[in-house]
Design a protein around this nucleic acid. Structure first.
Lengths: 187, 187
DNA sequence: CCGTGCCGTTCCGTAAACGGAACGGTCGGA
DNA sequence: TCCGACCGTTCCGTTTACGGAACGGCACGG
């Protein structure tokens, strides 16, 4: 705050740099892209230089014209590990839902070492793990399950639960969290 | 232009819905999240209802407080459906690998209707499917397996294999393809 | 039965992103 | 050499997202 001009979260600058890269790669001039995307040159200029805080709509217009998904100009998907602790890391890949539940799909890795404990979630939440490599021991703290490469685990996470790598190999897995019926069945 | 309120690209509405899902999952009230994220209640309310066109900075503040990457609330990460055919669609979420194999993680959906056949892959490729909703019948064409919500299927895909939704509900699932060690430690 | 507290929405003045126009700088052809 | 076309930046009035405060609705407790 204060200060005057620069005014940006660390992110805005990188977004601008990425857009400029994509534009020059395609041999487009700033004026040209602005016209194609239907935004002002001032807007695009300020955006690329990181001195503006674009609206979502503006980013849509520009990335669409560049032919890349919006996510391509924002911090890379794998970039933010949503770290859960010393031994376990996870990256949220996607959120989606249907009438009955909301789902969060993570990629997860567990480093060798002591088990890590996770607190209980609210009622009805289930966890689904598919192991890609390594051997994982996970589940309710009082009755963990074990799975090797290609294995699959599933438990209800309304009690404290643990994750641990068995052996010296790091474990890679996908983790699906299922939250039943987040909203009260509106509409 | 015209009118006053709606004003949105198709995306804004979905972004709002996703944020609301993430918030309610965590048992947070709108007021609470607004305070934590340092944004006005009016802002968050308008955003969730899709009547505002948020600035990037605003989205950062909110998603950071929810503990998810910015990309999680924006329209599909992969955006490129890598469609496999009439009944089956899939989006590539991530590619990664280790010493032993390369993995491709997809989210997949299967529409009700006739089964769809996929040709055999080269030797040693395995497919791992976790069903989120609906009932899926899939696997080797001569011996398919069945799984409902929360179920898990796995087969070696060096023979032709099928995917089909059982019943009238669309099937949502994650699909992991495992390609063993493409080359013999060259490079 | 009526406060009290919190919920989510709406109203409103302010700050800032927006598009259009003007600006200086560089290149190429007459 | 001059001139026109185009570049990217800066100026400026308009539009709109922003935060704070007020509002009605609902659940609890005295």
């Amino acid at each position: 705050m204060t200060a005057a001009a620069p005014a940006d979260d660390r992110g805005a600058r990188e977004v601008g740099r990425r857009i400029r890269s994509l534009r020059t790669e395609r041999g487009l001039s700033l004026s040209e892209l602005a016209r194609l995307a239907g935004v002002g040159k001032a807007t695009l200029s300020g955006l690329e230089n990181g001195v503006r805080n674009p609206r979502l709509e503006t980013l849509y217009a520009i990335t669409a014209q560049l032919g890349v998904p919006l996510t391509a100009v924002l911090s890379a998907p794998g970039e933010a590990p949503t770290v859960r602790g010393a031994a376990v890391g996870a990256t949220l890949l996607e959120v989606f839902g249907d009438r009955e539940a909301t789902y969060e799909l993570y990629r997860m890795w567990v480093s060798p070492g002591p088990a890590q404990l996770s607190p209980a979630h609210s009622g009805g939440v289930t966890e689904h793990v598919t192991v890609f490599s390594g051997v994982l021991r996970a589940g309710p703290a009082d009755a963990p399950l074990t799975a090797g490469p290609g294995g699959y685990l599933r438990w209800t996470s309304d009690v404290p639960h643990t994750y641990a790598a068995v052996g010296e190999e790091e474990v890679h897995a996908s983790l699906l969290l299922r939250y039943p019926r987040p909203s009260t069945l509106d509409s």
